[in-house]
Amino acid sequence: MSAARTLRVPGRHGYAVEFSPYLPGRLACAAAQHYGIAGCGTLLVLDQNESGLQIFRSFDWNDGLFDVTWSENNEHVLVTCSGDGSLQLWDTAKATGPLQVYKEHTQEVYSVDWSQTRDEQLVVSGSWDQTVKVWDPTVGNSLCTFRGHESVIYSTIWSPHIPGCFASASGDQTLRIWDVKTTGVRIVIPAHQAEILSCDWCKYNENLLVTGAVDCSLRGWDLRNVRQPVFELLGHTYAIRRVKFSPFHASVLASCSYDFTVRFWNFSKPDPLLETVEHHTEFTCGLDLSLQSPTEVADCSWDETVKIYNPVCLAVPG
C-alpha cells in the first residue's frame, strides 16, 4: 500500500466519509467534537491534490454530525444528520449554510442516504427515536415515516437497484427491508444476536446485503431466503461500525471497526480476509470506496484523521 494521504482535524472526531459521485478527488467528512458525546459538529469538504488532502470548505453545526451523503442531482449539495435530531442541506458553492434544516426526528439521527436510482430524488434518515423518515430535499417536511424497529436505528441505505426500496439496521438485532410505496416493512431479518450498526447493498446482486454488528461479525443475506446468512466473515475484534460493498468487484467489501482497523474481504474466497489496514489509533467509524478509482479508499476515525489510500488487495482483484 502506498502511503496514505492524511488530514488531521484537531478537536473533531470523524464519524462518516463519502466520496463525491461527481468530482474526482472530492470527499466529505462528518465529524463531531468530544467523540460525539457532547459539543458541536463540523462538515468538512475536502479536496485531494498533488500536495495531499486540503480543506475546501468547512461548515459548523451546533451538535455532532454523524453521517453525510452527497446529492445525486447537484455536485455541490450534501445532506448531513446530527445529534439534535435534525438533517441539514448544504451547498459547497456558498460560504455559509445550511440552505435548509429538516427537524422532525426526536433523537439522534445516525444515518442519512441519498437515493442513487435517479427515478426520484429522495433522502432516507434513520434515528435513535426508532423511526425512519423519507424526505424530498426540496420540501421541508418528511414525506413518510416508517415505524417498526424496537430500538435505535443505526443505518438506513437505499437499494442501488430498486427505486423506493431501502434497508435499515438497528439495535433491535434486525435488518429490515422497506418499500416507500407501502408503509409497512416488507422483510424482517433477525440478522445477529447483537446490535447491528451497519448494512450495505451489493452493487451487482439486487438480493444481497451485508450487515456488520456488535458481535464483530459480518453476515451476508440473500433476500430470497433469509433463514441463513449466505456468508459470515470473522476477524474484527470489536464492533463493526460501517461496511461498504465495492462498486467494482461483486464479492469484495470493506469494513471498519472500533478495533481501529479497516478490513477488506472477498466473501467468495475460501479465506475471505484480503487485507487488514491498521493505520488508525482510535475507533474507525467512516469508510467509503471511490466510484472513480477501483483501488481508492477513504476512511476517518476518532483519532482526528481522515485518510485516503490504495490498499494492495484492491489492485489485484480476484
Binding site: Y35, G36, I37, A38, G39, N62, D63, G83, D84, Q107, E108, W128, V152, G171, H192, A194, E195, L197, A213, V214, D215, C216, S217, E232, L234, T237, Y238, A239, Y258
Partner: peptide, 25 residues
C-alpha cells in the same frame, strides 16, 4: 445541547463494546 443526551450517547457507545464475539465454531 442537551447534556442528558450525552449520558444516553455514552451508554449506547458502551453497549457497543460489551457484547461477546459471534460464536466461533
Amino acid at each position: 445541547m442537551d447534556y442528558t443526551r450525552a449520558g444516553a450517547r455514552l451508554q449506547v457507545l458502551l453497549g457497543h463494546l460489551g457484547r461477546p464475539s459471534a460464536l466461533q465454531i
